[in-house]
């Protein structure tokens, strides 16, 4: 068992007290301030259980204290698998899974912030996860449905970085071969019929949503 020790003294003079309000303003983060640090989320989290560097309680505390850079640039916020167990267990209905989504969106948005002090850099895993999410939604934009080989291929090529990113695919070679063997890979775009209008409609929704949020 590890002993409890104060790892690092937190310097609050550089903290941003408005950070918590920024998170509360983001859809999904509304219930953040209700957290009373009971740690139920951390105890029930499967990722924490498996021994990875992820602590929901700590992330909420950091947000409340205004440790902007530490939170947004940490790998931790990208570790969440989105299983909603913490949301379910929380006595205060803080809805941590949605807070994580909000934090991810803020982190991505701030990579292009003009204010240099507020600009954030995504960690490696963050870049990968964000790239995956983006390819996924682009695939829906293109076909109206996701087409796995297309978006996963693009994810490996661009998301993992050209030119060697695609080599990461070899890590998944057993999975890919298994799917090929069972004829589970779709070689043609799904639902690609002239009478389907889903792709066009989805593009319209994407466009409108973007213009509303601006």
């Amino acid at each position: 068992m590890s002993t409890i020790s104060i790892e690092k003294i937190i310097d609050l003079s550089t903290a941003d007290p408005n950070f918590k309000n920024e998170v509360v303003n983001e859809p999904g983060g509304e219930h953040l301030k209700k957290c009373f640090q009971c740690s139920s989320c951390t105890l029930t989290c499967p990722v924490t259980d498996a021994g990875f560097d992820f602590n929901p309680r700590k992330i909420i505390r950091q947000v409340l204290l205004g440790m902007r850079k530490e939170v947004l640039e940490s790998t931790a916020i990208w570790q969440c698998v989105g299983c909603y167990e913490c949301t379910d267990r929380c006595p205060q209905n803080v809805r941590f899974t949605e807070i994580i989504e909000a934090l991810r969106r803020i982190a991505v948005r701030n990579t292009k912030n003009k204010d240099k002090k507020k600009r954030t850099k995504l960690p490696k895993q963050g870049k990968h996860k964000h790239s995956f999410d983006k390819r996924f939604s682009e695939s829906i934009w293109l076909w109206g449905r996701t087409w796995e080989p297309e978006y996963i291929g693009r994810y490996f090529m661009y998301g993992r970085g050209l030119p060697f990113g695609a080599l990461i695919g070899f890590r998944y070679i057993s999975m890919i071969l298994g799917m090929l063997k069972k004829f589970k890979i779709e070689f043609f775009p799904p639902g690609f019929h002239p009478w389907n209008s889903n792709a066009r409609k989805v593009r319209k929704i994407y466009k409108k949503a973007k213009s509303i949020q601006k």
Partner: peptide, 25 residues
């Protein structure tokens, strides 16, 4: 007929409103 993808958890992480829009469709 003519259904589209629900966006799973991935689209929400990119664009919150669009994700709800495509499900509502």
């Amino acid at each position: 007929k003519d259904w589209n993808c629900c966006g799973a958890l991935e689209v929400t992480a990119v664009d919150h409103l669009a994700a709800e829009g495509i499900v509502a469709r």
